[in-house]
């Protein structure tokens, strides 16, 4: 299984899609948005450059989850590779586990790169333990989307799955305040934003920046979304795998 995981990570690192969608896009957006728009500090005193660094790192992490889990599963089902796998000792459950682990591992380079840009280019200064705590907080924030990816991968076929993933990805990211802070939204949109998993996943890390502990009352909303996505994934998986 470790061998299969290694092959999956290697395959993704070689693919242009991963490099473009998961790494280049969020990193470029981060630099573009922070260098062009010279925003002042946020209401709670957090540096805007640090806030947006976390937003884009989470955006990349979610992308890794949705594309390397969802679209890949859909593609491999459509092209018949999963039939071949069904004839190997790798159980479908382990296959899904490998996909989720791949997504989580692939998000680490994105997080690292954007943090590096924050530190080197934008002079983001944080205590060392906050830097360290951000990595798991972001990876954990991305996991519900890996579950959603599984549900999409076992529901739609190749190109449709890709379109659905992208649509879900953009809508959730935008409305969840990853592209611009939810506090600048009109009130109605801001209240919607607060119940979205993207916003609450971001909160885990945004709170760390403000020096708070990551878990808050809003984390329950994230947990509820996660439970729903997992249930959806299990149902779709049982129906199709």
């Amino acid at each position: 299984m470790i061998a299969y995981l290694r092959l999956e990570v290697l395959r993704s690192l070689r693919s242009g899609g991963y490099l473009a969608y998961t790494i280049a896009f969020p990193a470029t957006f981060y630099l573009l948005f922070t260098l062009i728009m010279q925003a002042g500090p946020m209401a709670n005193g957090t540096q805007y450059e640090a806030y947006f660094m976390v937003s884009m790192a989470l955006y990349g992490t979610i992308g890794a989850g949705l594309t390397s889990v969802g679209s890949r599963i859909a593609l491999e089902r459509t092209k018949g590779w999963t039939r071949q796998l069904a004839l190997s000792p790798l159980r479908p459950r382990a296959y899904v586990g490998v996909k989720v682990a791949t997504g989580a591992m692939l998000s680490v380079p994105v997080i690292g790169l954007i943090m590096l840009a924050g530190w080197l280019v934008n002079d983001v200064s944080l205590p060392w333990y906050t830097w360290l705590a951000l990595v798991p907080a972001l990876v954990v924030g991305g996991l519900p989307f890996a579950a959603l990816g599984i549900a999409i991968g076992y529901t739609f076929r190749d190109e449709v799955a890709q379109m659905v993933s992208l649509a879900v990805y953009f809508v959730f990211s935008m409305a969840g305040g990853l592209w611009m802070p939810a506090m600048v939204f009109p009130d109605w949109l801001e209240s919607i934003s607060h119940v979205l998993p993207t916003y609450q996943a971001g909160e885990l890390s945004w709170r760390l920046l403000a020096g708070d502990q990551p878990v808050s009352a809003g984390t329950a909303i994230l947990a509820a979304w996660t439970a729903a996505f997992v249930a959806l994934a299990v149902w779709r998986y049982r129906r199709t795998a």
Binding site: L7, G80, W81, Q84
Partner: peptide
Amino acid sequence: GKIGAVLQEGELLPGT
């Protein structure tokens, strides 16, 4: 691993 099968259709895993 006692049974091996060659299927008629299906692509191999790409990118490897």
